[in-house]
């Protein structure tokens, strides 16, 4: 869709957009009716507004064919049913932007696929854990805490953090379902380091039927976990390194579902990890 065209067409509906932006009452009526048809009384109680204010708003919405009356209830028209969720979605998106502003500001979002950016409102019910001067590792500590309580873990990690490795070490021999996506650069580093600890974790995971490891060729600018009970999301700062001072954590189902979709997006691009890829330094010693 070319922008030129959109810019021209936008004029046709800019008044419709303004119509919803100007009046809080109208917007609240739309939000409320999106749930189900309601009587004036219900709207009055729910929104805490005077009947006259509500009826005035309803009148205007009726004139725009967004709401109609059936017996003593007001309902969204089909147009209303299509537009209301779009407006609500815009509102929850603005909520997510505002609430977690420091997570987005000066950070990379280019590796969150378009479909998931469009559903970013699903992250509404999250916490932004930020490092504090007296607790600089706070985000990471909370993450490890959540991780240790999980029985099903799907994660993408483009970095290799000591504590994360520790967690994996404990879990690799356990009855925990793990699906882990690593990047090729990490695998190369591990191979080069010939770090026996890391290699033994990898071997354990490969040997554990409940655990799967994938390798991603590219280096995504985000790290995330979608576990049975939480989602975590960290972004890279614009300088190209992960920002360890901020992490979005959520125990909300919508957020976790969002994380699972993100995982599925990346797993499709990844290849199965092969042990020999880290053992090659041993197998083919440098001459």
């Amino acid at each position: 869709m070319d922008t030129e065209n959109l810019l021209n067409l936008y004029e046709e509906v800019s008044d419709d957009l303004k119509f919803h932006g100007i009046s809080g009452t109208r917007m609240k009526i739309m939000i409320s009716l999106n749930e189900e048809g309601k009587k004036t009384k219900n709207l009055r109680e729910e929104l805490g507004l005077a009947s006259s204010t509500i009826l005035h708003g309803i009148n205007e919405l009726e004139r725009q064919n967004l709401v109609f009356r059936k017996e003593d209830k007001y309902l969204l028209s089909q147009t209303g049913q299509i537009i209301a969720p779009k407006l609500i979605d815009m509102i929850t998106t603005l909520g997510v932007i505002k609430k977690y502003e420091s997570l987005w500001l000066n950070h990379e979002i280019r590796d969150i696929p378009h479909d998931l950016i469009m559903q970013i409102g699903n992250l509404s019910n999250s916490m932004l854990i930020e490092a504090e001067s007296t607790n600089i590792l706070k985000p990471h500590r909370e993450f490890i805490e959540y991780l240790s309580k999980s029985k099903n873990i799907r994660a993408l990690s483009p970095i290799c953090h000591k504590d994360f490795v520790e967690s994996m070490k404990t879990m690799s021999g356990e009855d925990v379902n793990i699906e882990l996506i690593l990047t090729q650069s990490i695998i190369d580093k591990v191979a080069k380091s010939m770090d026996l600890e890391l290699i033994s974790i990898a071997m354990k995971m490969v040997g554990n039927k409940k655990q799967k490891v994938w390798v991603l060729k590219e280096d995504p600018t985000l790290a995330f976990t979608a576990a049975d009970s939480f989602l975590s999301l960290s972004l890279f700062s614009e300088r190209g390194v992960i920002d360890p001072t901020k992490m979005l954590i959520s125990t909300d189902n919508d957020s976790i579902a969002w994380g699972n979709t993100l995982f599925e997006h990346y797993v499709k691009k990844a290849e199965k990890f092969k042990l020999k890829s880290i053992l090659k330094e041993f197998i083919q010693p440098k001459r």
Binding site: G24, M27, N34, T92
Partner: peptide, 8 residues
Amino acid sequence: TEKIIKIY
């Protein structure tokens, strides 16, 4: 609804 209105 209540939550959405709060966000709004």
